[in-house]
Design a protein around this nucleic acid. Structure first.
Lengths: 197, 197
DNA sequence: GTCTATAAACCGATAGAC
DNA sequence: GTCTATCGGTTTATAGAC
């Protein structure tokens, strides 16, 4: 976007940026935003704090970049589900199963979304919007199932969406504390119940 | 426990201790453990940091005392539900409804349980145990309903317990971010579904 | 029991050399 | 682009006067 440079430098800068984002994601996963320091992130990348701050002006800027980076990854996952021709709720299971492959992803969103309930948290509005967005997507999914006669007509799609998200989030916290939980089963059971009702 | 003192001093000390615990609970509710400082707690009580540390030797000791204090409050709530002769799931609804009266309580457990998924967190084992304990209580409740023919025989009480806790926890996070969620309805709907299935 | 003062470490961020 | 050095602020915790 700024002055043009040698392609070699641009490529290298981009590589470092991404390695910082990955390291920050991992560090934030364990300690949240408040419980993590730039020193930890820098150490994980193998550079100095000042070196890190050359790529991201502040800790908050780094967090925002991490959130943006994760969104692009999520979009990719969603796209492949669409390409496979999966319809709700199968595409949703696909997303969860994909998430479960990387515990850091589960930790990040569990810890960060709870931390971000504080209105002063830098990611507050991000998670606020995120929940509304995901709720709408799932509510549309349930509405489609209702039209297709796959779930009872008296089910409120929006309420079902919020509940499914709650089950997903809640089981993830339990899973992080005690690994005696199946992340998918509870959600499948719930949708089965909706179908049987 | 140590040397005996004047009753007047003891009473005053106890009062200050409890006011510190209440202040700490409120501060931790908003920022979690990592995002809160002793300065904030001390300011809320109206004493100095050193004054606070006279009553609790360290920040971790304060957190442990807060958790212990909350357990005693919870036990009190559970007892009154028992005295009212409420059986599962009505007693559980009672606990949730009571919790919902104080948003700080919801914030505290939502933020702290997520933060405590980190094995290095001082409250890690507390929340680990807490989930196992609550899961057992609710699983017994569902087992009782199954024996009484109130839910289908093929329902797994433990899985249902974990799911109900997940719904409760998950909806609380959503409620903290966007107040467009009913904390009780999702849980009542779920148990209704189990009964109908 | 509460205070002031302070230690010692860590934090995010900046300045400037290379 | 990365580094060392450093500033200014905050953190938990201690020492010691009252």
């Amino acid at each position: 976007m700024s002055e043009p440079r040698r392609k070699g430098n641009q490529a290298h800068t981009q590589e470092v940026r991404i390695s910082i984002l990955k390291a920050a994601f991992s560090v934030f996963s364990h300690g949240g935003f408040n419980g993590s320091s730039l020193k930890q992130v820098a150490a994980k990348v193998g550079i100095s704090e000042a070196g890190l701050l050359h790529h991201f002006n502040s800790k908050v800027a780094l967090l925002n970049a991490v959130l943006e980076y994760r969104d692009s990854v999520s979009a990719e996952v969603a796209e492949t589900a669409i390409k496979k021709g999966l319809a709700f709720p199968l595409d949703w299971y696909q997303v969860i199963a994909n998430t479960a492959k990387n515990p850091d992803v589960i930790m990040f969103f569990a810890v960060m979304s709870a931390e971000a309930t504080n209105p002063d948290h830098p990611a507050h509005s991000y998670f606020k919007d995120r929940y509304l967005r995901v709720t709408n997507v799932l509510a549309e999914g349930f509405a489609g199932m209702r039209e297709a006669g796959q779930i009872a007509p008296e089910i409120d799609p929006e309420q079902a969406a919020k509940t499914l998200i709650a089950i997903s989030d809640g089981l993830q916290v339990q899973w992080l504390l005690n690994k005696n939980v199946d992340l998918l089963q509870g959600q499948k059971d719930y949708i089965s119940l909706l179908s049987a009702g």
